[in-house]
Simulated assay, not measured.
Amino acid sequence: MIYLTEKDILEAATSEDMLDAIEASLRLYEKKEFHMPQRLHVDHEDNVLLLMPCFTKDYFGTKVVTLFPENPAKNVPVLNGIMVLNDAQTGVPVALLDGPALTAVRTAAVGAVSIRHLAREDAHAVGIIGAGVQGFYQARAACSARNITDIFIYDLYPEKSSALKDKLSKALPDVRVHQAARVEDLLEETHIVITATTSLEPVLPDKEELLAGKHFVGIGSYKPEVREFPKALFGLLKTVYIDTEHALEESGDIIVPLRNGWLAQDQIMTLGRFLTEGKSQDQVKQETTFFKSVGMALFDVCASKLIYENSVRKGLGQKIVR
Protein backbone atom coordinates (compact mmCIF):
# COMPACT_ATOMS: atom_id res chain seq x y z
CA MET A 1 0.00 0.00 0.00
CA ILE A 2 1.20 3.50 -0.76
CA TYR A 3 0.33 6.92 0.64
CA LEU A 4 -0.10 9.73 -1.90
CA THR A 5 0.24 13.35 -0.86
CA GLU A 6 -1.13 16.40 -2.67
CA LYS A 7 2.23 16.74 -4.45
CA ASP A 8 2.09 13.09 -5.57
CA ILE A 9 -1.49 13.48 -6.80
CA LEU A 10 -0.63 16.53 -8.91
CA GLU A 11 2.45 14.80 -10.37
CA ALA A 12 0.68 11.51 -11.07
CA ALA A 13 -1.79 12.70 -13.71
CA THR A 14 -2.03 15.61 -16.11
CA SER A 15 -5.18 17.72 -16.21
CA GLU A 16 -5.98 16.20 -19.61
CA ASP A 17 -5.67 12.67 -18.21
CA MET A 18 -7.97 13.56 -15.33
CA LEU A 19 -10.57 15.04 -17.69
CA ASP A 20 -10.53 11.82 -19.71
CA ALA A 21 -10.94 9.69 -16.56
CA ILE A 22 -13.85 11.77 -15.29
CA GLU A 23 -15.53 11.77 -18.71
CA ALA A 24 -15.24 7.97 -18.71
CA SER A 25 -16.84 7.90 -15.25
CA LEU A 26 -19.80 9.96 -16.51
CA ARG A 27 -20.36 7.37 -19.23
CA LEU A 28 -19.94 4.58 -16.66
CA TYR A 29 -22.63 6.25 -14.56
CA GLU A 30 -25.09 5.96 -17.45
CA LYS A 31 -24.29 2.28 -17.96
CA LYS A 32 -24.88 1.62 -14.23
CA GLU A 33 -21.70 -0.46 -14.10
CA PHE A 34 -20.95 0.41 -10.47
CA HIS A 35 -22.42 0.08 -7.00
CA MET A 36 -22.61 3.28 -4.96
CA PRO A 37 -24.32 2.92 -1.56
CA GLN A 38 -25.88 6.00 -0.05
CA ARG A 39 -23.22 8.03 1.69
CA LEU A 40 -23.24 8.14 5.49
CA HIS A 41 -23.73 11.67 6.81
CA VAL A 42 -23.13 12.17 10.53
CA ASP A 43 -23.74 15.48 12.31
CA HIS A 44 -21.93 15.81 15.61
CA GLU A 45 -22.34 19.12 17.41
CA ASP A 46 -21.49 21.68 14.69
CA ASN A 47 -19.31 19.30 12.69
CA VAL A 48 -19.92 16.78 9.92
CA LEU A 49 -18.46 13.37 9.06
CA LEU A 50 -19.07 11.91 5.60
CA LEU A 51 -18.31 8.35 4.45
CA MET A 52 -18.60 7.93 0.68
CA PRO A 53 -18.14 4.37 -0.68
CA CYS A 54 -18.30 3.13 -4.28
CA PHE A 55 -17.54 -0.17 -6.05
CA THR A 56 -16.38 -0.61 -9.66
CA LYS A 57 -15.06 -3.60 -11.59
CA ASP A 58 -11.37 -3.09 -10.77
CA TYR A 59 -11.37 -1.09 -7.55
CA PHE A 60 -13.59 0.09 -4.76
CA GLY A 61 -12.96 2.96 -2.42
CA THR A 62 -14.24 4.99 0.49
CA LYS A 63 -13.59 8.67 1.02
CA VAL A 64 -13.77 9.82 4.64
CA VAL A 65 -14.38 13.56 4.87
CA THR A 66 -14.71 15.87 7.85
CA LEU A 67 -16.15 19.41 7.82
CA PHE A 68 -15.31 21.44 10.91
CA PRO A 69 -16.58 25.03 10.40
CA GLU A 70 -14.62 26.47 13.35
CA ASN A 71 -11.26 25.25 12.08
CA PRO A 72 -10.11 28.55 10.50
CA ALA A 73 -9.87 30.06 13.99
CA LYS A 74 -7.37 27.27 14.75
CA ASN A 75 -5.52 27.84 11.47
CA VAL A 76 -6.73 24.44 10.23
CA PRO A 77 -8.67 23.87 6.96
CA VAL A 78 -12.43 23.35 7.23
CA LEU A 79 -12.27 20.30 4.93
CA ASN A 80 -10.07 17.33 5.77
CA GLY A 81 -10.16 13.68 4.80
CA ILE A 82 -8.60 10.68 3.17
CA MET A 83 -9.44 8.24 0.40
CA VAL A 84 -8.91 4.49 0.82
CA LEU A 85 -8.59 2.61 -2.49
CA ASN A 86 -8.98 -1.19 -2.50
CA ASP A 87 -8.40 -3.93 -5.05
CA ALA A 88 -11.86 -5.16 -6.07
CA GLN A 89 -10.74 -8.79 -6.46
CA THR A 90 -9.10 -9.22 -3.05
CA GLY A 91 -10.32 -6.30 -0.93
CA VAL A 92 -6.71 -5.43 -0.13
CA PRO A 93 -6.16 -1.68 0.36
CA VAL A 94 -3.64 -0.49 -2.23
CA ALA A 95 -3.50 3.25 -1.61
CA LEU A 96 -4.33 6.08 0.76
CA LEU A 97 -4.80 9.43 -0.99
CA ASP A 98 -4.94 12.94 0.44
CA GLY A 99 -8.68 13.66 0.54
CA PRO A 100 -8.80 17.42 -0.08
CA ALA A 101 -6.35 17.19 -2.99
CA LEU A 102 -8.27 14.32 -4.60
CA THR A 103 -11.57 16.20 -4.17
CA ALA A 104 -10.08 19.36 -5.65
CA VAL A 105 -8.68 17.77 -8.82
CA ARG A 106 -11.64 15.52 -9.56
CA THR A 107 -14.23 18.27 -8.94
CA ALA A 108 -12.32 20.62 -11.23
CA ALA A 109 -12.16 17.93 -13.88
CA VAL A 110 -15.94 17.42 -13.73
CA GLY A 111 -16.50 21.10 -14.44
CA ALA A 112 -13.91 21.07 -17.21
CA VAL A 113 -15.56 18.10 -18.95
CA SER A 114 -18.70 20.23 -19.25
CA ILE A 115 -16.58 23.02 -20.77
CA ARG A 116 -15.09 20.53 -23.22
CA HIS A 117 -18.54 19.57 -24.55
CA LEU A 118 -20.83 22.54 -23.90
CA ALA A 119 -18.80 25.75 -24.19
CA ARG A 120 -18.23 27.49 -27.51
CA GLU A 121 -15.08 26.32 -29.28
CA ASP A 122 -13.56 29.82 -29.47
CA ALA A 123 -14.06 30.54 -25.75
CA HIS A 124 -10.81 31.98 -24.44
CA ALA A 125 -11.78 33.91 -21.30
CA VAL A 126 -12.98 32.28 -18.10
CA GLY A 127 -14.41 33.93 -15.00
CA ILE A 128 -13.96 32.51 -11.50
CA ILE A 129 -16.37 33.65 -8.80
CA GLY A 130 -15.10 32.54 -5.42
CA ALA A 131 -11.36 32.72 -4.79
CA GLY A 132 -10.98 29.66 -2.61
CA VAL A 133 -9.19 26.36 -3.20
CA GLN A 134 -11.73 25.18 -5.75
CA GLY A 135 -11.39 28.44 -7.68
CA PHE A 136 -7.72 27.66 -8.32
CA TYR A 137 -8.30 24.10 -9.49
CA GLN A 138 -11.33 25.01 -11.63
CA ALA A 139 -9.32 27.67 -13.47
CA ARG A 140 -6.42 25.26 -13.96
CA ALA A 141 -8.68 22.52 -15.34
CA ALA A 142 -10.59 24.93 -17.61
CA CYS A 143 -7.32 25.69 -19.38
CA SER A 144 -7.13 22.02 -20.36
CA ALA A 145 -10.59 22.12 -21.94
CA ARG A 146 -10.22 25.29 -24.02
CA ASN A 147 -7.41 27.55 -25.23
CA ILE A 148 -7.78 30.02 -22.38
CA THR A 149 -5.84 33.27 -22.68
CA ASP A 150 -7.47 35.27 -19.86
CA ILE A 151 -8.84 34.49 -16.40
CA PHE A 152 -10.94 36.99 -14.45
CA ILE A 153 -11.42 36.55 -10.69
CA TYR A 154 -14.06 38.01 -8.39
CA ASP A 155 -14.51 37.48 -4.67
CA LEU A 156 -16.31 39.48 -1.98
CA TYR A 157 -12.93 39.81 -0.29
CA PRO A 158 -10.45 41.56 -2.63
CA GLU A 159 -7.46 40.20 -0.74
CA LYS A 160 -8.56 36.65 -1.60
CA SER A 161 -8.90 37.57 -5.28
CA SER A 162 -5.44 39.08 -5.19
CA ALA A 163 -3.94 35.96 -3.59
CA LEU A 164 -5.58 33.70 -6.18
CA LYS A 165 -4.41 35.97 -8.98
CA ASP A 166 -0.81 35.59 -7.79
CA LYS A 167 -1.13 31.82 -7.42
CA LEU A 168 -2.66 31.35 -10.88
CA SER A 169 -0.12 33.66 -12.50
CA LYS A 170 2.66 31.41 -11.22
CA ALA A 171 0.87 28.17 -12.14
CA LEU A 172 -0.26 29.37 -15.60
CA PRO A 173 2.46 31.75 -16.84
CA ASP A 174 1.06 31.87 -20.40
CA VAL A 175 -2.36 33.07 -19.22
CA ARG A 176 -3.24 36.65 -18.29
CA VAL A 177 -4.93 36.78 -14.88
CA HIS A 178 -7.11 39.73 -13.88
CA GLN A 179 -8.85 40.82 -10.68
CA ALA A 180 -12.41 42.02 -11.40
CA ALA A 181 -13.80 44.84 -9.28
CA ARG A 182 -17.41 43.77 -9.88
CA VAL A 183 -19.22 40.63 -11.03
CA GLU A 184 -20.67 42.68 -13.89
CA ASP A 185 -17.15 43.47 -15.13
CA LEU A 186 -16.26 39.77 -15.04
CA LEU A 187 -19.37 38.84 -17.05
CA GLU A 188 -18.66 41.43 -19.73
CA GLU A 189 -15.20 39.96 -20.35
CA THR A 190 -15.78 36.19 -20.23
CA HIS A 191 -17.31 33.30 -22.20
CA ILE A 192 -17.18 30.71 -19.40
CA VAL A 193 -18.18 31.45 -15.79
CA ILE A 194 -17.49 29.12 -12.87
CA THR A 195 -19.01 29.72 -9.45
CA ALA A 196 -17.35 28.13 -6.43
CA THR A 197 -18.74 29.99 -3.44
CA THR A 198 -20.45 29.32 -0.13
CA SER A 199 -23.12 31.96 -0.81
CA LEU A 200 -26.72 31.26 0.17
CA GLU A 201 -28.06 33.71 -2.42
CA PRO A 202 -27.29 34.13 -6.15
CA VAL A 203 -23.86 35.60 -6.85
CA LEU A 204 -24.76 36.73 -10.39
CA PRO A 205 -26.99 39.68 -11.34
CA ASP A 206 -30.56 38.87 -12.38
CA LYS A 207 -30.06 40.33 -15.86
CA GLU A 208 -30.43 38.17 -18.99
CA GLU A 209 -28.32 40.51 -21.13
CA LEU A 210 -25.27 39.87 -18.94
CA LEU A 211 -25.75 36.10 -18.90
CA ALA A 212 -26.69 35.25 -22.50
CA GLY A 213 -24.37 33.20 -24.68
CA LYS A 214 -22.11 31.92 -21.92
CA HIS A 215 -21.39 28.53 -20.39
CA PHE A 216 -21.93 28.40 -16.62
CA VAL A 217 -20.51 25.82 -14.23
CA GLY A 218 -22.01 25.66 -10.73
CA ILE A 219 -19.87 24.09 -8.02
CA GLY A 220 -20.84 25.77 -4.75
CA SER A 221 -24.51 24.95 -4.09
CA TYR A 222 -24.71 21.60 -2.30
CA LYS A 223 -27.73 22.15 -0.01
CA PRO A 224 -31.44 22.62 -0.89
CA GLU A 225 -31.49 26.20 0.40
CA VAL A 226 -28.22 27.29 -1.21
CA ARG A 227 -28.21 29.01 -4.62
CA GLU A 228 -25.57 30.67 -6.80
CA PHE A 229 -27.66 31.41 -9.93
CA PRO A 230 -30.49 33.92 -10.50
CA LYS A 231 -33.92 33.45 -12.04
CA ALA A 232 -32.85 35.26 -15.24
CA LEU A 233 -30.45 32.46 -16.21
CA PHE A 234 -33.17 29.81 -16.42
CA GLY A 235 -35.14 31.82 -18.97
CA LEU A 236 -32.17 31.50 -21.32
CA LEU A 237 -31.67 27.74 -21.05
CA LYS A 238 -33.04 24.93 -23.18
CA THR A 239 -31.45 22.26 -20.99
CA VAL A 240 -29.81 22.10 -17.58
CA TYR A 241 -27.03 19.53 -17.34
CA ILE A 242 -26.22 17.76 -14.06
CA ASP A 243 -23.55 15.23 -13.10
CA THR A 244 -25.87 12.94 -11.11
CA GLU A 245 -29.57 12.71 -10.26
CA HIS A 246 -28.60 13.51 -6.67
CA ALA A 247 -28.54 17.15 -7.77
CA LEU A 248 -32.35 17.05 -7.92
CA GLU A 249 -32.43 16.48 -4.16
CA GLU A 250 -29.30 18.29 -2.99
CA SER A 251 -28.83 21.59 -4.81
CA GLY A 252 -30.92 24.73 -4.44
CA ASP A 253 -29.81 25.68 -7.96
CA ILE A 254 -32.03 22.85 -9.22
CA ILE A 255 -34.64 22.54 -6.46
CA VAL A 256 -35.68 26.21 -6.32
CA PRO A 257 -36.08 26.70 -10.12
CA LEU A 258 -38.17 23.51 -10.31
CA ARG A 259 -40.34 24.53 -7.38
CA ASN A 260 -40.90 28.05 -8.77
CA GLY A 261 -41.63 26.93 -12.32
CA TRP A 262 -38.52 28.53 -13.85
CA LEU A 263 -37.39 25.08 -14.96
CA ALA A 264 -39.29 21.98 -16.08
CA GLN A 265 -38.30 18.44 -15.11
CA ASP A 266 -37.95 17.42 -18.78
CA GLN A 267 -35.35 20.15 -19.30
CA ILE A 268 -32.88 18.39 -16.99
CA MET A 269 -30.37 15.90 -18.37
CA THR A 270 -27.26 14.24 -16.97
CA LEU A 271 -24.09 15.18 -18.80
CA GLY A 272 -23.32 11.46 -19.15
CA ARG A 273 -26.56 10.89 -21.01
CA PHE A 274 -25.77 13.80 -23.33
CA LEU A 275 -22.37 12.26 -24.06
CA THR A 276 -23.61 8.70 -24.57
CA GLU A 277 -26.44 9.72 -26.92
CA GLY A 278 -23.80 11.01 -29.31
CA LYS A 279 -25.82 13.94 -30.62
CA SER A 280 -24.14 16.82 -32.43
CA GLN A 281 -22.68 19.33 -29.98
CA ASP A 282 -22.29 22.15 -32.51
CA GLN A 283 -25.69 23.74 -31.87
CA VAL A 284 -25.48 23.34 -28.08
CA LYS A 285 -22.14 25.15 -28.00
CA GLN A 286 -23.78 28.24 -29.51
CA GLU A 287 -26.43 28.39 -26.75
CA THR A 288 -26.42 29.62 -23.18
CA THR A 289 -25.59 26.49 -21.18
CA PHE A 290 -25.49 25.54 -17.51
CA PHE A 291 -23.88 22.55 -15.82
CA LYS A 292 -24.48 21.87 -12.13
CA SER A 293 -22.20 19.50 -10.23
CA VAL A 294 -22.81 18.06 -6.77
CA GLY A 295 -20.25 15.26 -7.03
CA MET A 296 -20.39 11.55 -6.24
CA ALA A 297 -18.17 8.78 -4.93
CA LEU A 298 -17.84 7.26 -8.41
CA PHE A 299 -15.68 10.25 -9.39
CA ASP A 300 -13.39 9.60 -6.41
CA VAL A 301 -12.83 5.94 -7.32
CA CYS A 302 -12.20 6.60 -11.02
CA ALA A 303 -9.85 9.50 -10.26
CA SER A 304 -8.05 7.44 -7.60
CA LYS A 305 -7.56 4.55 -10.03
CA LEU A 306 -5.84 6.86 -12.51
CA ILE A 307 -3.68 8.47 -9.83
CA TYR A 308 -2.73 5.17 -8.19
CA GLU A 309 -1.81 3.33 -11.39
CA ASN A 310 0.20 6.29 -12.68
CA SER A 311 1.93 6.65 -9.32
CA VAL A 312 3.01 3.01 -9.33
CA ARG A 313 4.37 3.45 -12.84
CA LYS A 314 6.23 6.67 -11.91
CA GLY A 315 7.46 5.50 -8.50
CA LEU A 316 5.51 8.14 -6.59
CA GLY A 317 4.20 7.90 -3.04
CA GLN A 318 5.41 6.53 0.26
CA LYS A 319 5.20 2.79 0.72
CA ILE A 320 3.41 1.67 3.87
CA VAL A 321 4.56 -1.69 5.22
CA ARG A 322 1.76 -3.69 6.82
Rank of each mutant, 00 (worst) to 15 (best):
T103A: 00
Y3T: 12
V312S: 00
G295A: 01
E228R: 09
Q318G: 15
L211R: 06
I82T: 13
N260F: 07
D122T: 15
K207R: 14
A141F: 05
E209G: 03
I151S: 11
G315D: 13
A180W: 02
L49G: 01
W262A: 01
K285I: 09
M52D: 02
L67A: 09
Y154T: 08
L258E: 03
E184S: 15
H117C: 10
L28K: 12
V133Q: 04
T14P: 06
I219G: 07
D58S: 15
I255V: 09
I219A: 02
L168A: 12
R313E: 14
L210E: 14
A104R: 00
Q267T: 06
A112N: 08
L306F: 05
K57Y: 00
G252W: 02
S144R: 03
N80C: 13
T289F: 08
A142E: 02
V175D: 04
G130M: 11
N80P: 07
A101N: 01
A181L: 10
G295W: 07
V301T: 02
V240F: 01
S280V: 04
F68H: 06
N75K: 15
D300F: 14
H178F: 15
L258P: 06
T289L: 00
L298W: 14
T288C: 13
T190A: 12
A297H: 03
A180P: 04
L200N: 01
T270K: 14
A125R: 04
C54Q: 04
K238P: 05
L275M: 02
I320F: 12
D266L: 10
A171G: 10
